[in-house]
Simulated assay, not measured.
Amino acid sequence: MTSFSSGGTSSSSDRVPPALKKVLNLDISLTKKFVSGVERAFPVVASPAGRTYMKALEISCHGLPWFALTLISIYLLRSIDSREVEINLLFGLIYDVMLVGFVKALTRRNRPSSNVNDDMFMTRGVDKFSFPSGHASRAVWVALFFTQWAIPEMSIIFRVLLLGWAGAVTVSRVLLRRHHLLDVAAGVGLGFAEFLLSGILWVGPEACKWLGDWIASSEDEYNG
């Protein structure tokens, strides 16, 4: 597959098919218009306070905190029901990292030229590329995982808060100039696909019990 780039000076951009280049250029143009329009309508978005808020959203959906909190919960929460959620959450995070990394390695699209790399939280390897947005895919997958699979009886208040967080993370990726609109749209679609995949590959309670014990290296009995 031919890699593509935009918003940068990579030599690979010379090998992009003309039709795809038109799509990418249109995406760049629409992204700039979207960001400019939002910043004109809501000046706080472009302010230091607005950027700080969006960077907090960036960290809240970064893979490292999610992996760390999931592993900590495996050590601390040992009921069978908790184990089932924890292990499937862990596997879903792994699916997400693998799929996003694979697509980014194939496409190798540059991030927007206005992105500030030194301002990004823990970006290494293929994560320096833009397509698709890993934050968007993870936010969508996590929100659907908890509201549909893990805690289907979740109250409407927490459901709205979780879905609102996912939406805010997704939009902030464009407003922070980390991604183009097409990157985020692809991330949302990938997150939904991961949600369907997690339902197909759902690990049952007994297997989760064994895997949780193995990961935590614990012989303690379950509390429930």
Rank of each mutant, 00 (worst) to 15 (best):
W165R: 03
G199K: 14
L106D: 09
G187D: 01
A166S: 07
L176K: 05
T107H: 08
I87C: 04
A186M: 11
L89E: 02
D220N: 13
S36T: 13
G224I: 02
V100H: 07
L93A: 04
G191M: 07
I80C: 13
V184S: 04
A143K: 08
L77S: 14
L211E: 09
I74R: 02
W66P: 01
F158W: 14
P132C: 06
L26E: 10
R124P: 00
S47N: 07
F102K: 09
F67Q: 03
S133C: 15
G101H: 11
D183M: 13
L90Y: 08
P17C: 08
T70D: 06
S114C: 08
N25T: 14
F192M: 02
A216H: 08
P48R: 02
L197W: 08
R15N: 09
G92F: 11
M54N: 06
D81A: 15
P132D: 12
P65T: 04
V23S: 05
I74Y: 02
V126N: 11
C61D: 13
W66V: 11
K104I: 13
E206F: 11
S60E: 03
V97H: 06
S29M: 12
G92L: 05
S73H: 02
E58L: 08
V142L: 11
L182E: 04
I151T: 06
L162Q: 01
P43I: 09
P43W: 04
D183R: 06
W210K: 09
L93Y: 07
R78P: 07
Q148S: 06
S79L: 04
L162I: 07
D96M: 09
V44S: 12
S155P: 04
